[in-house]
Design a protein around this nucleic acid. Structure first.
Lengths: 231, 231
DNA sequence: ATTCGCATCGTACAGTGTACGAGTCAATTG
DNA sequence: CAATTGACTCGTACACTGTACGATGCGAAT
């Protein structure tokens, strides 16, 4: 009886090491592993977006049969979970910074977070429905730790963490969303001028048109951090 | 040649008014309109979640053929757009409040926003991919207007709006997400204690376990508003 | 030589969104 | 009154999806 690994980590197949072809079947190059599957899924998502990822297409890119994937992965949802978490890996910069640099560290991590997700716009729309992978948890842990080290009292910690997390998530999702829907700037522009009558303040502030997303993110973050550190 | 309305608003069918049955076909009750479709879609989403909504099931609930829906609606995506916006309608409380109550008004609208989305948890996961419907824009407009009336300078307006928006979106998505994934508390609990080794600070703060979501939301909002008003 | 467990994959099935075109029926026109 | 139009409904069909099931191959252990 065969038992699938599926979600037990730490399990690499030990196959033939050197012998690259058996008989005459020079099966391109592929041993087909979880890592390869996830990496290819990210590629495919980058290239074709969320609807572009189907098990058959993914398998084709791996030069494998569609059902072969199911040995390594429980179902399609799991592929999404893994792809999302993979994209959110974070290596903290080397620890030579002074302990009062906590704010710089935080901003660095949070801006990197946002940047990572914007580099893979599908990740933003995926986030709401996915489980917390190790990389996401790692970022949360780093966040808690840094805030705690910065002197935030334990009873205020959760508010601080969630406020920052919420802000990053919201900003990223919004931004990623606007990027795509403005593929057709022309249509958007026209829609906006038509809307200016019903929504005058939005129209005046040009909120939807030429927001400086990066600057807005940075400033909003400052507002939050100011508020948190004076508490 | 027939021309579909599909996305031209202001178009109600004028049919037989009083005569409820023609001949002997007492066709239950259904004239099948955009409004009825959207309302039923929301019902279905509430009952079965995002994957539960299929065109065939929706049609069945309306006692109509599946393809009949496509006269009123361009495609399934549009159904999602409309359902989402429908759920986000907001009636501002009567305008008897003093002008310095802007902060109370803001908090009311934002908490109502979050509450509306949590009442229909699918809406949170839908938000990232959807267009801005009139109700969403209405809320944005109200937000701008109130902040502007509160004396926020025009050049700070966008930062303020987006910060609040981001916060609400992020908080709601996170919350809705956790609700679902904790259907099986037992599993979550066990996972958490196992994780406590790798993520000590998260474990200590019990961040994922017993957060007071409503309180955290309210406090985070205060932090933001404090930060914004002292600028 | 036989067994066993890992790994791959072909076939099949139920279900999806929707294109197409035929159908119904009230209102309008000649 | 007959004919035409146009709003609306819906049955059938097609390409495509995720994945259950079982057959197959293969290296290592017995």
């Amino acid at each position: 009886m065969a038992v699938k690994p599926s979600s037990e980590r730490s399990k690499q197949p030990r196959r033939k090491k050197a012998p690259l072809q058996s008989k005459h079947e020079l099966r391109s190059d592929a041993p087909l592993s979880l890592d390869r599957i996830v990496a290819t899924a990210v590629e495919l998502l980058d290239a074709e977006g969320i609807e572009g990822l189907t098990m058959r297409r993914l398998a084709a890119r791996l030069e494998a049969g569609a059902m072969s994937l199911y040995w390594h992965v429980g179902n399609k949802e799991e592929v999404f979970d893994l792809a999302l978490d993979q994209v959110l890996e974070y290596r903290r910069p080397l620890q030579n910074s002074a302990p009062e640099d906590w704010r710089k560290e935080l901003v660095h991590m949070l801006e990197d977070w946002r940047a990572s997700m914007l580099r893979h716009p599908w990740s933003a729309s995926l986030l709401p429905r996915r489980a917390l992978g190790p990389n996401i948890l790692g970022r949360l842990e780093l966040l808690s730790e840094t805030l705690s080290r910065a002197g935030v009292a334990d009873e205020d910690l959760n508010v601080a963490i969630w406020s920052l997390w919420n802000f990053v998530i919201g900003a990223t999702i919004t931004r990623a969303n606007f990027d795509r829907s403005d593929e057709d700037r022309a249509a958007a522009q026209q829609r906006l001028t038509h809307l200016a009558e019903s929504y005058p303040t939005i129209g005046r502030s040009r909120l939807l048109l030429d927001s400086d997303w990066d600057g807005t993110f940075r400033k909003g973050l400052d507002v939050l951090l100011d508020g948190l550190s004076t508490r």
